[in-house]
Design a protein around this nucleic acid. Structure first.
Lengths: 238, 238
DNA sequence: CAGTGGTCTAGACCACCAT
DNA sequence: TGGTGGTCTAGACCACTGC
């Protein structure tokens, strides 16, 4: 236990996160004004503002002077490539998506462990390609706990025009908040090489991602193979 | 030009950065107290605090309740691996360093461009290996503008026990503030493979880094080859 | 023009650290 | 015990947005 109780602004931050998790405000919605929140939580406006500043830094909300504070949404254009760091060497970021498959399966040990599931719990597997300039550059395989994504199918995926995370948000109420990635260089296995149209054994960037929703609950495990001959993974350190 | 002048806290932030760049306070030094800074800049303590909060978020300073605000330093244990994201799969982070060479040369076009130098300006090249558990896992090659690192030599490098960035800071007054990295998977070239003791053509993670000092001036260009069989590059997205 | 967030101030009180 | 940063409050005024 902490010696001191968490500061008020942190308690308020957590209450707001809980409300977001409960769906009180959906992605894209406007939150009550600072004054209204201050009243609701019985704190001064400055303290509420501090809580909102933290949430802004975490990318959970977005503030627009003159209009209000809004719940972040992956449907916004700005969030399009929030978690996809592969950019073309000339700076281009766009991709076209090609769905390879979507099926129900039982979690492998590795997947269950990553997602915090019991062994062999049902998950949904999605496989797809991302193309740039007509060339496949990313092979993505991802696994989702079925209980959070009931009804996800190839049809649903095919009909949705936007990003996966935008779909998850609007259709399943699962908003991705942050992610951890592990990167490695690997040799292309035969099946992967064929899909990416590269030689077998060609070096690929293997990106494993664990994505979390509100309250730090992992809800997606993903493995991507990036072909980096004229693209690179871009990162900022500070 | 901005329609509105920058807010006061931002102006103060910039003044403090300028003072850091000028060496008024060196890494590890304590800054004047909030009250003293408020007096110096003719602002209220709250405004100075806001400026210091920004600098804290950028990792330029570090605040310790009860003792003061200090200039960040790469000599601190916490900063040991601030820019090195390669961790062993079991979480270990330590390395041992082996110097391969240090020489003066003229900047290639690529290096000059990255560092903002004129063509063929003199730079210092450093090459080294990082070992983990007795095995080489990183081959680093880096280039520094000679005018900022006059006197850097194999001897100087050999005698310094800590990280390169700690050395740059204490010996040359160059503090690294942030960096941009570009990652790719590549096949090991013969010379690289020999040094890392892997097969030729083995997939390696190629990490290009441009590191900046105060005022966003690039002062180091680096290329690393990471062997990622039981290590991975770890990244956080939000 | 009303409502929103953004800036800036002033000050009280607390927690922590060094001595 | 004195000095430091950390929290919280209260309120004034400004800038921007949308109706």
């Amino acid at each position: 236990m902490p010696k001191t109780p968490a500061p008020l602004y942190e308690q308020i931050r957590q209450l707001i996160v809980a409300a977001l998790a409960a769906g009180e405000w959906r992605p894209g919605d406007m939150l009550p004004s600072e004054a209204a929140l201050a009243q609701r939580f019985g704190a001064s406006p400055g303290t509420v503002r501090r809580a909102l500043d933290e949430l802004t830094a975490e990318n959970l909300v977005e503030r627009r002077q003159g209009s209000g504070t809004f719940v972040s949404t992956h449907s916004a254009p700005r969030q399009q490539f929030r978690f996809l760091r592969l950019v073309a060497d000339d700076g281009e970021q766009g991709f076209t998506r090609e769905l390879l498959g979507c099926r129900r399966m039982r979690a492998t040990a590795a997947i269950a462990h990553a997602l915090g599931l019991r062994a062999a719990e049902p998950v949904i597997e999605v496989r797809r390609l991302l193309h740039r300039r007509g060339r496949p550059v990313v092979l993505d395989e991802l696994w989702l706990p079925e209980r959070h994504f009931e009804g996800l199918s190839a049809d649903v995926l095919a009909q949705h025009p936007g990003t996966l995370y935008a779909l998850f948000e609007t259709r399943f109420g699962v908003h991705m908040v942050r992610a951890e990635e592990k990167l490695r260089a690997v040799a292309a296995a035969p099946e992967v090489a064929a899909l990416l149209r590269v030689g077998e054994g060609e070096p690929l960037l293997c990106v494993e991602r664990l994505a979390y929703t509100y309250g730090d609950r992992p809800v997606e495990f993903r493995r991507g193979f990036y072909y980096t001959s004229s693209d690179h993974y871009s990162n900022e350190l500070n």
